[in-house]
Amino acid sequence: MFQAYGTQRALEKLGYDSEFINLYTREEEKKNENKSFALKLKPLLIYMYARLNPKLQLKYKRFREFHGLMKLTKRYYNIEEIYNNPPNFDLHLVGSDQVWNLQRGFQNPPYYFLGFLGKDEKRISYASSFGTKNIDKKYNSRLKELLSCFSAISVREDDGVQIIKEACDLEATQVLDPTFLMNAKEWGELATKERLIKEDYVLYYGFDNSELSRQLIINLKKRLGLPVVAVSGGVSFPFKVDYFVKEAGPREFLSLFKNASFICTSSFHGLAFAIHFRKSFLTIKHPQRNSRMETVLNKFDLFDRQVKNANDLLIQSDEEFFVDYSKIEDKIEFERTRSLNWLENNIANLIE
């Protein structure tokens, strides 16, 4: 949702009106709000817990409200509706996130490659991602066929540039995730004004249940002497923490990051918002999809933020443990400007 919001705000800054194609299937809605259940014990218990827990119901309400802040087309309930009656715009843009993830092959039909458009329709990508360092060569021919229709291609990872070059012999540009097209002040204005946690705290945001994550939570609390607050996309959290915030919608999520004393995350956007709000942080390497984290960490000279051993943080000096953003402010601003300029120039070349 933040990627979508950041993209639309960037387009507004550049003077363009935009709408999101509002594809939201019944199945996705049920999944997002835990409205589906099976006659098996675990799914049934999750369903009952989500339906009866007022904090989770508040969370779903908050997401719906934030969704309403964006300009959307009418709601489409399946991809076939879009193919049968394609929306008509001067330019179509796809991105960000893993819209080109080919782990399970090509989606049929290839919606996220804008396959519903006519041959002469103008299209570009902004910060699209394959979610991996490489793809199976058997996809090369089809990928080239689909991407050759694009007037300009930008991707989120350095590896994506290489994939497109090797698989398609096409040029692509690496740009920042669209959340970087907004600054900390802009994101902070969206956050709830009242702090969710009154005292200082360490924030953990992630989706894994690794032993490394568990040990990091323990050692961060020991090192900093602060309570640990967790926020997650799920209805439960696998580790012992001082607070697990179940009711956070997008605005509350921003508030938790804005007011944290330190952040630990296994999520790319956890990393991104730690940087947006200039917080000291540690990241946990994803076992398969780590390319996007590595691109940002390398670009901003923050690769030492990726933890391999949880005990290291107990012996690091303060200089090693905390991030000195004064050393990298110029790099962050340079990359933000470069990414926004790519978007501005490629849109202007096509519709002005």
Score class of each variant (00 low, 15 high):
10 A>V: 05
39 L>C: 06
121 E>V: 00
173 T>S: 12
330 D>S: 13
38 A>Q: 13
103 Q>H: 13
331 K>T: 11
177 D>P: 07
8 Q>N: 05
183 N>P: 06
60 Y>G: 05
295 T>P: 01
206 G>F: 06
161 V>M: 03
269 H>Y: 03
113 F>D: 04
117 L>N: 09
254 L>G: 10
93 L>Q: 13
50 A>N: 14
235 V>G: 04
333 E>R: 03
153 I>D: 00
98 Q>L: 12
321 F>H: 09
207 F>D: 06
264 C>I: 15
104 R>F: 14
157 E>N: 11
178 P>L: 12
165 K>F: 10
105 G>H: 04
340 L>V: 10
347 I>M: 10
42 K>E: 13
123 R>E: 04
270 G>H: 05
18 S>M: 00
130 F>C: 12
253 F>G: 03
48 M>I: 15
207 F>V: 13
266 S>Q: 08
246 K>V: 03
224 L>H: 10
252 E>M: 10
191 A>E: 10
61 K>I: 02
176 L>P: 09
172 A>P: 11
285 K>A: 15
350 L>N: 00
340 L>I: 15
6 G>M: 03
235 V>P: 02
150 F>L: 09
267 S>K: 04
2 F>I: 10
186 E>G: 07
211 E>N: 13
143 L>Q: 03
276 H>S: 14
271 L>A: 13
248 A>G: 06
226 L>F: 03
40 K>E: 11
53 N>C: 06
79 I>Q: 13
